[in-house]
Design a protein around this nucleic acid. Structure first.
Lengths: 331, 331
DNA sequence: CTGAAAGCGCTTACAG
DNA sequence: CTGAAAGCGCTTACAG
């Protein structure tokens, strides 16, 4: 049988209350009794039962992370920031990949509720009203990452997507490109697609270039869709010289399509991505892209949840353009 | 206040024991009382407290996954298989990235013990005796993935690395390559480096090619090290025509180095990887590689843990060569 | 500084 | 088929 707090209390000739106080670094004991108790703990190899603790505290040192999928560089990096930060603070993280269009979100929310999770990070997914209702019902603090809520005051951490997309497009325009394609996300996706689309369009307009429907094509952020999008785009608009893909993965798909077709990048086609995940630097040629501070976003999400962040309320994170070799200057 | 089992018992005019039985689909109640209880549960929005349950059962529906890092295609895919399978069976997974040389392993083991985890998946890391002792001390079932224990009977799931490496090397030899480099992992790493090295060497020997020290170079499985390794390799052995990298990431690093130097792949240099992670197909040119069934390995790891797998004991998974465009036939 | 006792929300023999 | 009661391993007023 694993030793319990009772065992150490008995062996140390104190009450369980005292042991508990020592374990939790509260006050109410002499240095001598502390020493004695600690020695006994060591002797019998006692380890506290976090579940018992969770039962009385009605919460656990556990964070749930809801995200669409696990298999993208963005998610890996975000998770990395979250888990490392949480671990340092004594929190565990439970991963909840919600799958296609968030179909498993309700199921995972139920689990996190039952497990008495101490916080929820809700990332890269549109927070439906239904979820928000559930958040408040189960009474677990939430922070949004790379998404936000229109009608509710839930703190979020994200980049100004419209602005970043504007800058990406401007970057291409500044280098003399006049026919610029956009590989967008799902048409109605309000969190990434729409703002980035808006930024693209705005930049075009601001710099006197016409916005053309046929220069825009819609994918799903993944590599395969990047290939297909690039193919469509060339069919619809053979004269484009540059393309802005709103995820690195789709940008790499565009690179692959160009490679298959013998179209040289950046000589015949310039490509700029979004995210600055690891594949951006691994791509051939290395991909110029919008850098998002993904790791830090994960880090600050847990800090916010634990009320350990300097900033109160939502945070807009900085982005920047990382220049590599996939964009050619026409001038 | 959240409703508890007492609240539903009172409102349904039954005892908590009966509610518990219904909740756990045991027997001992009429259809009528079941219906009544279920209705009350619905009415008052009762959800069970998994923590309370965990306290009495002395275990939770939680699996811990220990792995070296989160940011590689291999780990993402493995995690994906694990989490999806676990979720279907009502288990949550806690991620434990043990960091450089597994430094956080003891810390995470402690947490999993305190949390009363129901199982542990220990992946891609050498299980030191110290960890194994801890496994049995904390009395949580363990399965090893992509690793194994020499002296202890812990079930594992992995590919026959030596054989797979042999086949990769043979694949190159079959296509007329005589000077074949090896981009290996850390020299003393017993789980991936040594067996794959052995397979490479054996194939060379079996087919009458000399093994040369200068054709072998040691990295750390990551992209950056692949670049450096390729550079060293060319310095030490300028006449190699093919290279086997024991991870896709390092293979892609080799591709990048070749690209920087204007060395055409596969015309001037053939490259074969290992893992068949997503970057293999995203690479330019698409990478020929050894496919490991990573998702399935994760899937079966959780099945084994839950005694839900057809196979008892350890499992050797099949590998296969996936031919893409990074290897040229010299004949 | 210290302890006795109640209580967290469940499950599980045991008795009927 | 059903319930009363003990107990899982902690924390926390409360009293001294």
């Amino acid at each position: 049988m694993k030793p319990t707090i009772k065992d150490v209390a008995k062996k140390a000739n104190v009450s369980v209350a005292t042991v508990s106080r020592i374990l939790n670094e509260q006050q109410g004991y002499t240095a001598a009794t502390k020493q004695k108790v600690l020695r006994v703990i060591n002797e019998i190899g006692y380890t506290p039962n976090a579940i018992a603790r969770g039962l009385v505290k009605k919460t656990t040192q556990t964070l749930g992370v809801l995200l669409p999928s696990l298999t993208s560089g963005f998610m890996s990096e975000l998770l990395n920031g979250i888990v490392n930060t949480a671990h340092k603070r004594g929190y565990s993280v439970i991963i909840c990949p919600t799958g296609d269009r968030g179909k498993d979100t309700p199921g995972y929310l139920k689990v996190l509720n039952e497990q008495q999770a101490g916080g929820i990070i809700f990332a890269c997914e549109w927070p439906k009203d239904e979820y928000i209702k559930e958040f408040s019902r189960i009474h677990i603090p939430v922070v949004l990452v790379s998404t936000y809520s229109e009608h509710h005051q839930i703190p979020y951490i994200r980049v100004n997507d419209k602005q970043a997309a504007y800058q990406a497009t401007k970057y291409l325009i500044d280098r003399g490109h006049q026919h610029i394609g956009l590989i967008c996300g799902r048409k109605k996706d309000p969190i990434a697609s729409i703002p980035r689309f808006e930024g693209y369009k705005q930049a075009l307009t601001d710099f006197g270039l016409a916005f053309r429907e046929e220069n825009v094509v819609y994918g799903d952020f993944r590599y395969e869709s990047g290939i297909k999008c690039m193919e469509w785009l060339f069919k619809k608009s053979p004269n484009i010289t540059a393309v802005f893909a709103i995820s690195d993965e789709m940008a790499v798909g565009a690179l692959s399509y160009a490679y298959q077709q013998g179209i040289k990048v950046p000589d015949k086609l310039s490509v700029i991505g979004y995210d600055d995940t690891q594949i951006a630097e691994m791509a051939i040629p290395p991909l110029t892209t919008i850098h998002q501070p993904i790791y830090e976003m994960g880090e600050r999400a847990v800090k916010m949840l634990l009320n350990d962040d300097e900033t109160k309320g939502s945070i807009i994170m900085p982005y920047r353009i990382v220049e590599r070799d996939s964009v050619k200057s026409m001038t």
